[in-house]
Amino acid sequence: MGNQFDINFMVTIALKAAIRYVPITLELALIPFVIGTILGTIIALVRLYNIKYISKILQVIVVIIKGVPVVLQLLIVYFAVLQCFDSVAKTLHLSIRAKNINSVYIGLVALSFFATAYISEAIRGALTAVKKGQYEAGYSVGLTKVQTLRQIILPQAIPVAMPMLCSNLIGLIKGSSLVFMISVTDLLNGALITANSNYKFLEAYVAAAIVYWILCIVIEKISYVLERKFYSFNGR
């Protein structure tokens, strides 16, 4: 194990490898984020308007997903898919087998569940933060529930939700780093592979860290700008 930190290796080889796989990491973070936002909004609305049985079921599901580490969710989904897929595929007469699936898709599914639960909480919190009087005023001028939501509530809820959504996205980027456990080559794994032959793992990890750090900083800056834009009615 070399005592000197090999900056040259880190920058020329490890860093380059990490950057090459950034698209995979972004995929693993953004796709669940989008899915999570769409489904999360629906879940948040269902829970906000307390729709008979579905609301309670969703509450239980969200609590469970929030209470189990993301690593475990990833691993459980992975092994569950591996075990069940073959039997399901046989019954449907499909020719693909579990070992042919690219694990990326499994990662996407697991991270999507994770994202949906957390984002639905963020949106629900934002919707309840908008004062009840805004809902009542909307109804009293003759708007329907949907119209009130669209014209009055959501525009006020989005800027409230943005900081939490930003931190959820950052959480997804960091969570995506765990897919190396299910043999997906993302930016972390990509950097590590370069160190397999020369054992310069420290340099590889530092290279990966730098790329993650920059990604997160960029996201924070974008979120800050968007927040200012959406909150313009507050005279900020």
Partner: peptide, 14 residues
């Protein structure tokens, strides 16, 4: 009907 509220309840985003 139309209502005027004690805490005005103007739409903050308009």
């Amino acid at each position: 009907t139309a209502m005027v509220f004690q805490s005005y309840n103007l739409f903050n985003n308009k």
